[in-house]
Design a protein around this nucleic acid. Sequence first.
DNA 1: CCTGTATGTGGAAACGTTTTCACACAGGTT
DNA 2: AACCTGTGTGAAAACGTTTCCACATACAGG
Lengths: 367, 367
Amino acid sequence: MPSGITIKDVAREAGCGVATVSRVLNDSGPASAETRKRVLDAAARLKFSFSDVGRSLQSRQTRAIGCLVPSLVNPVFAEAVQELQACALERGFHVLLMCSNYDPALEAEAMRILLAKRVDGMILTLSAASDCAELATVQDRNIPACMMYNTPVPGVPSAFVDNRSAARDVAGEFARAGHRRVGFLALRFGSSDRARERYEGFLEGCRAMGMDDPVLVEVDEAIRFEDVNLQRLLSGDRALTGLFASNDYLALSVISAVHDLGLTVPGDVSVVGFDGIAIGRAFRPSLATIVTDAREMGRIAADTVIEMITTQDMPVPELSGLAYSFRRGESLGSPRGGRTDDGEVAASPTPSCHPKRNSTVPKEQQS
Amino acid sequence: MPSGITIKDVAREAGCGVATVSRVLNDSGPASAETRKRVLDAAARLKFSFSDVGRSLQSRQTRAIGCLVPSLVNPVFAEAVQELQACALERGFHVLLMCSNYDPALEAEAMRILLAKRVDGMILTLSAASDCAELATVQDRNIPACMMYNTPVPGVPSAFVDNRSAARDVAGEFARAGHRRVGFLALRFGSSDRARERYEGFLEGCRAMGMDDPVLVEVDEAIRFEDVNLQRLLSGDRALTGLFASNDYLALSVISAVHDLGLTVPGDVSVVGFDGIAIGRAFRPSLATIVTDAREMGRIAADTVIEMITTQDMPVPELSGLAYSFRRGESLGSPRGGRTDDGEVAASPTPSCHPKRNSTVPKEQQS
DNA sequence: CCTGTATGTGGAAACGTTTTCACACAGGTT
DNA sequence: AACCTGTGTGAAAACGTTTCCACATACAGG
């Protein structure tokens, strides 16, 4: 019996009709000073508070924004969600949260729940925006939506950074430090558009800099580096001298794993991350990474979706990619036997890199 | 126009009454094979999906669990929330999330929103459970609720650890390492029961070990150590040799600030945290801390509240405090001029540690 | 005295469900 | 022929709001 007491009880208590109660409590219509007082008193006496479910039914809006992210443990999403929640609250909306755990099936189920809940808008970070059936439904129904971290698809705006371009920059940084053989480390590579885009940009960048193609290292959610056999990747003739992790969380984990192996960063291997989470700066070695502004992502997404909700028939806004920047950090150094800048590397054959496959590669801002 | 299409449209399309549609789509009553098919077809053709708001109104339950935490950026809460969200989803509930930002006013507003939303249950981490007016309303209305991290109050169960006891243990660890003058570092001390309890336990512990009373160092949310003048606390005749931070997040920040000052941990000052967040292990120096299981907190809270929701007239369950353990870490060492392990300190009176007050102090595992 | 315009007020419909209830009709029994 | 007993079905009420509309009452101007 949640609350139990309804507007009718208040009306009875105050000796008037429900319409009057609604009017005075919402300040939405005329009422004599005397009635007003009676109603207010009655409501207070009964500790009445409106039920949003009745309200939502009649107003045909819930003032809820559905939010779906792959994880909260990754600080990037935690920050974004916290910020967008605060923004929403400020504007009288609240957030219905779902975590997909990077699982496409859960993702789909979460979207269906959000749809059933009749949220007024959605903020989504999807594994694969381009082929998400539920996202199509969202568009069908004209539900305002905005993505975060996903590259936008036609009809759905997104608060995002250009993953490819940023990853190319990272390749440049590795090259400048003298690396030639590096790896790309991804969590659940298969089910994350972001990881894939970062890999593709990294690959392009490596080729452009005359480095070897990066080795793709995939880890599962548990991040068990024993399985990956980090040791083997980092030793021997063709040892990797650098690792680009698809996010900071992973980067920090791999640094830790490297230490556990008795090796050092960046002595034995350099590590670069992606996201720019705060803790990376405090870490020793401090984490070299692409810095993005998670809170701004959240804020932009919230603003966008709320604006779409509140203004009718708005055209889908065009959000441009957000600024990012490379942060130097101690985790990126020169390889052991390496040249500092551009030594004999440039002199060697430098096999031309991208035989084909340079499809659509945007590269807007470069903050 | 969210979805727009309702059960009535389906009924019309299928040429039957709404009751029939409800029955076949919910599998909740008889229907001839032929009608069943017609309804199913119609629903599919129209892409119909039930509206939870209509449903909630009539069933008088929302299958929503309200969740209020002070922050998501602190990984402890992120993990707990992620876990409880997953648990809830498994049982057919979803989570309405709110962050209070450690702000009592926001906290109160968030609770009112949750109340208005008519959530079926609540999971709360409050700044001061004992005097929260809205919590009283929750109890009034018999809304199932469970706290997390808060010490339970009569009538409201909680998934918690015994902050006082754990903090006393930390004092013991400092003493064993040879410290005498230490500080306690808290974020918004005034508005967090947890920080206060940890301080009190620490104070008791320090006294019991014959150490000086710990110095209380309070920082605001922005964690600006310039304002705190860390330098002064750590130098001079009466310099602190150790700092106990009220949570790991803060501990990591202070280690970083100490480094920025050109000092070392634990050389110049030892640091111990509270919570046991994962990243603390990877940190250099690795963080000595009280390890708690955030996911278990979330899971227990979710299980508890869902059980209270699903079984009528259940007595308020008695949850015992969760296990915690001290994790040794490089961030706790002996003070500069200090004795290594138990030198002359142990030779001194060695006051028994927990004089009394060993009420319900579960202390099971000790990993 | 009749009409017109304010001003308060409450009844009732609508929002999208589920569920109760009654009804129709089939196929047995007596 | 009259009676049960199922089985399938739909009308209608209820859930808690808001809002539209109509109805009072009052008081002004003709």
